[in-house]
Amino acid sequence: MDTLHDLGGKQGFGPVDVNEPEAPWHHDWEGRMWAMAQSSRNTTVTIDWWRHVVEQLPPQAYMTIPYFEKWCMTDLALGVDCGTFTVEDALNIDEKTDVRPPDAPVPEVMNKVQILEKNRTSVKTFEEQVDFAPAYAVGDKVETLAHSVPTHTRLPAYARGRIGEILAHRGAHPLPDKSAQGVEAPEHLYTVVFTARELWGEDADPRDTVTLDLWESYLERL
């Protein structure tokens, strides 16, 4: 879908704030949100569906609210969708307390040492073993799909209908377009390199390139 999250190449933005202090968070609520995202999501929510729900924020909100607020709004919306709580629960929160009712499940309390180990063991590769061969090899020339699709996808608009070259085969990974619909469908994934001039025209620097990680069905052989 052509929603506003697809920012690559959009013009009109000002300079990047390069003087930001180096701290993990600049507000306490950002850290709380980060922590909740690590520990409490509904297990039926795939990473691609989660991203697609972020993309469903009202466009004006997507462009203006802070990054971790987008996470918060997405987890609130998915909590409602999953029946974990209702919209009314979320809107009337100030009338409640943080006390867990006696009939609610008892969550595990973890300290930092346990969290560090949980973080370490949470590592996972998205690569999957498949019994079909990749269609492309390193060095092959490919052309990306020219048009938008009605679903979540990870082919950015700026790289549609462009000719590139396979830089690396990365094995098979779940196709986000399907995963965002709850369907597991691994496909071969490639790092594809494009010249800056192919993407942006003759004014671009002839020395420069952009790489994207693209699934096989985003590509056509030249």
């Binding site: 609520w29 918060c72 979320a90 006390v99």
Partner: peptide, 16 residues
């Protein structure tokens, strides 16, 4: 908003 989410998750026993 983040406080609301935390309260909801804590109340439901989903996280401490």
């Amino acid at each position: 908003r983040v406080k609301a989410l935390e309260s909801l998750l804590v109340e439901r026993g989903l996280v401490a």
